[in-house]
Deep mutational scan, measured.
Amino acid sequence: RSRTAFTAQQLEALEKTFQKTHYPDVVMRERLAMCTNLPEARVQVWFKNRRAKFRK
């Protein structure tokens, strides 16, 4: 699988949600996936990586 390049709009939506909660539930992730045209699995991995970045 190749690396996913996120658009500015996708990142904005993801970051906005991350500010609200670092652990979105499956419903919220699926809604984000639909809004951003990304698979739910990519949204889940983005949050996992973003939490790791946040802890540093």
Rank of each mutant, 00 (worst) to 15 (best):
D25V: 02
S2R: 09
R1G: 08
F47S: 05
V27Q: 14
V43Y: 12
R31W: 09
Q44G: 08
Q10M: 05
K16G: 13
A41G: 13
M28F: 03
K16H: 09
Q10H: 04
L32C: 01
T4V: 09
K53M: 11
T21Y: 02
E12Q: 10
R31V: 04
K48W: 00
F18R: 01
F47C: 01
T17V: 15
K16Y: 15
P24M: 02
E15H: 04
T21P: 06
P39M: 00
L32Y: 02
R50A: 11
Q9T: 09
T17W: 02
A5H: 07
Q9L: 06
E30F: 05
R1K: 12
E15V: 02
W46M: 04
C35A: 14
N49G: 04
V27L: 12
F6L: 13
P39N: 10
K16P: 00
R42T: 15
R3K: 15
H22G: 02
K20N: 13
R3T: 15
L14G: 02
L11R: 08
T7L: 00
P39D: 13
V43R: 05
R50W: 05
N37F: 09
L32D: 00
R29D: 02
F18Q: 02
E15C: 04
N37R: 08
E30S: 08
K53H: 10
N37V: 01
R31P: 01
C35I: 15
C35D: 15
L32I: 08
A5V: 11
D25E: 09
R3A: 14
V26Y: 09
E15D: 03
M34H: 07
E40R: 04
T4L: 12
R31A: 10
E12N: 07
N49A: 09
V27K: 05
Q10P: 04
V27C: 07
F54K: 09
H22N: 06
K16D: 10
F6N: 02
A8L: 09
E40S: 04
V45W: 12
R51C: 02
R3E: 15
K16A: 13
P24R: 04
E15Y: 10
Y23W: 07
R1N: 15
Q9V: 09
T4K: 13
M28V: 11
A52L: 08
F54S: 09
P39Q: 02
E40K: 12
A5N: 15
L11I: 13
K20A: 11
F18T: 03
A33Y: 02
R3D: 15
E12G: 04
A33R: 01
D25L: 03
H22L: 06
K53F: 06
L11A: 09
V27H: 08
Q19C: 05
N37C: 04
F54M: 12
A52R: 09
L14S: 03
E40G: 04
T36V: 10
L38N: 00
F54D: 15
K48E: 15
W46D: 06
T17P: 07
R51W: 01
A52Q: 07
V26F: 03
Q10F: 00
T17C: 11
F47P: 00
T21A: 06
W46P: 03
M34R: 12
K20S: 09
A5P: 15
Q10R: 02
E15K: 08
Q9G: 11
V27M: 11
A33G: 14
A13G: 03
V45F: 06
W46V: 01
A41F: 09
R3M: 14
N49E: 15
F6W: 05
V27R: 07
S2A: 11
T7R: 08
E30P: 07
R1D: 15
L38I: 12
F6K: 06
S2Y: 12
K20R: 13
E30T: 07
R29Q: 09
T17D: 03
S2G: 12
M28P: 03
V26H: 12
W46S: 07
Q10G: 02
E40Y: 04
T21M: 02
A52I: 15
R51K: 03
V26L: 13
K53P: 05
K16M: 12
V45E: 05
V26R: 10
S2C: 10
T7M: 06
Q19D: 10
R3F: 13
A8G: 09
Q9Y: 02
T4P: 13
F6Y: 12
P39V: 02
L38H: 00
T36A: 05
A13Q: 10
R50Y: 02
S2M: 06
Y23I: 00
R42D: 14
R29W: 02
E30I: 00
W46L: 02
L11Q: 10
S2K: 04
Q10K: 01
D25I: 05
T7E: 08
R1P: 09
D25C: 05
A8T: 14
Q10N: 03
A52K: 08
L11N: 08
N49D: 15
W46Q: 08
E40H: 08
A33Q: 05
A41P: 12
N49L: 11
Y23K: 02
Y23M: 01
A13L: 13
T36C: 09
F47G: 00
L38V: 08
E12L: 05
N37Q: 12
F6S: 06
T21C: 15
Q10W: 00
R3W: 11
T4W: 09
M28R: 06
R42N: 03
A5E: 15
M28N: 07
S2P: 04
T17M: 14
T4G: 07
C35F: 09
A41T: 11
H22A: 09
A13M: 12
T21V: 08
M34D: 12
R29P: 06
R1A: 11
V27N: 04
N49I: 06
M28C: 12
E12W: 02
R42C: 15
Q9I: 06
L32M: 04
F47A: 03
